[in-house]
Each structure stands twice: as structure tokens, then as C-alpha cells.
Amino acid sequence: MNNEIDEGLRSELQKRGVWVTSTQELYNWGRKNSIWPLQFGLACCAIEMIATAASRYDLARFGGEVFRPSPRQADLMIVAGTVTKKMAPQIVRLYNQMPDPKYVISMGACAISGGPFKQGYNVLKGIDRYIPVDVYIPGCPPRPEALLHAFMELQRKITGQKLTGDDKAAHLDREQPSEFPVPAFGAHDLEPPSNPAVFRPPQLERT
């Protein structure tokens, strides 16, 4: 099935009052304009997330204002703040309880890498050690504009997701996992300290 429509033909038809689309486009357009985030915050980034959802920055302009208190009704997890090792299993469990398709925004330096607490004994060095992350936002904390930017990047990603074919979206692929193992509290650290199926750090070139 070819989803591509000739852009020139489409705009020509639009001028004459005929609107042409495909199932994929319609489906993705609907999804990207009603991303419901999961309502939880971990640290100071959550304050910026609240500001983004409030009237001044107004996340509702992008269809993301419906913060859900239950993971069963949420599409998006905004990991806003420091993930302590004591909190990490609960985050992974919440992610597992979300229905597909689901997305993760890693907001701020702490959620990306541990941030200023990276070398601490009690802070996870990035939530991407346990769950896949779609958009990373740097900043400490990122401004509401940065979160809006991440939201738009996520919308762009959803727009580009294919429904069929070999490169179809991960949530439509039966081979792709939608749940990830919850780490256990160990005697010295979380066990395992990272999930190698998810966390593949780039090989750094040392000179």
C-alpha cells in the first residue's frame, strides 16, 4: 500500500474543495493532537511542567492538557525530575501499566543522566537505563518553552510513524516489547543496574 500522495495534486484538489488523506495520516493526526500525559512529577522539573500546563504556556494548544492520574488512561510519560534508585522500579512499573502506543519524554538533566547527582549513590543515572525514551530535553530545569518544543518533536515523531510495512511503529510490531522488567531492590544497588536490551550507550572514541 502506498501512502504517499502527490503534494501538488493534493493542494490543487484542496483549492477545489476536495480534501484527500490516508488512513495513516488521519490516524496519526488524531493521535498527535490528543496526547494525554501521566500526571506525576519527581522534582523541580515538575514545577516547570505544571507551568507549561497552566494558562501562560497552555499545553492545551497542543492537545496535551488532559493529565491523567491513572497510567491506564495515559499516552505519554513525562519523567520530570531526579529519579532516585528507590523510585526507579515504580517508574518502570507505571510505564508497564500504560497501554500502547506510549511515549516517554525525559525532562531535564537528572532524568537524562542523573544530572548534578550523577555520581551519587542513590540517584539513577538516567531513566533510559530501564525504559526507552523518545525525546530528551536538556536543562536544569528546562523552561516551559523547551517542554513545548519536546512536545512538538513528539508530535512530529507520531506524524511520521507508519502503520504498515517493515518500518511500522513499534507498538504495532508484535516482536517489539511493550513492557520492561522492573528492577529489584538489591543489597547494594538496583538489580540489574541497567537493562541491556534498552540501554546501549554509544561507544566513545578515546584518543
Partner: peptide
């Protein structure tokens, strides 16, 4: 810390877990 934790992190001879791979 969690109940299963066995170390005492503020003691001077405490060594944190080695997760410096990246």
C-alpha cells in the same frame, strides 16, 4: 534508602556501586 539495602552510605569507608560504564 530501601529496606533491602545493607550499606551505610554516609560512612567514610563506603564505596558506591560501580556504574561508571558511560
Amino acid at each position: 534508602m530501601w529496606d533491602e539495602f545493607e550499606d551505610f552510605p554516609m560512612r567514610k569507608d563506603y564505596r558506591e556501586p560501580d556504574d561508571y560504564e558511560y
